[in-house]
Amino acid sequence: MERTTIDLWVGVFVAAGAAALFGLALKVGNFNSATLGETYSVTGAFENVGSLKPRAPVKSAGVVVGRVDNIKFDPESYEALVTVKVDKRYPFPKDTFANIYTAGLLGEQYIGLEAGGDDKMLQDGDKFSKTQDAVVLEKMIGQFLYSKASESGDDKSNDIKEAE
């Protein structure tokens, strides 16, 4: 095998390997969406974050506008402090509503921002004034069962009264 041919093939191999790595990073992984550019961070206190994880998307109207930076537990208020990084291109009003939603029935959790009507915009280091916790499925089922049970209990007492 001639040396130039070997060099050519090795060059092709290395280029293809590097291209595959880039392809994995960009097409398969979330490398491109991980870099948001200039961001500002806003903190929100939640009573329950469910299974929200760092790097989860922050969406507004279904569009990714930022990512969850970190989640800490506040031992004084017994709440979870979630810091999100929002792209500088998207300013939000001061009274923006931060909700924890679930994508699909069992999908990953993300933070949804609903813009308020305030004239002032959120600045770096601000706090969300209005937050809504993650829906915990067990709690919801528990409440549902409880309300059903009390309903049927009422029905029974009505039945008894009618019988009397």
């Binding site: 398969v28 992984g29 979330n30 969406s33 991980a34 998307p57 990953e108």
Partner: peptide, 15 residues
Amino acid sequence: FWSQMQASVDFREDI
């Protein structure tokens, strides 16, 4: 297919 893949495959953790 692609968007769920990109949402779950992490550059640092997986690749």
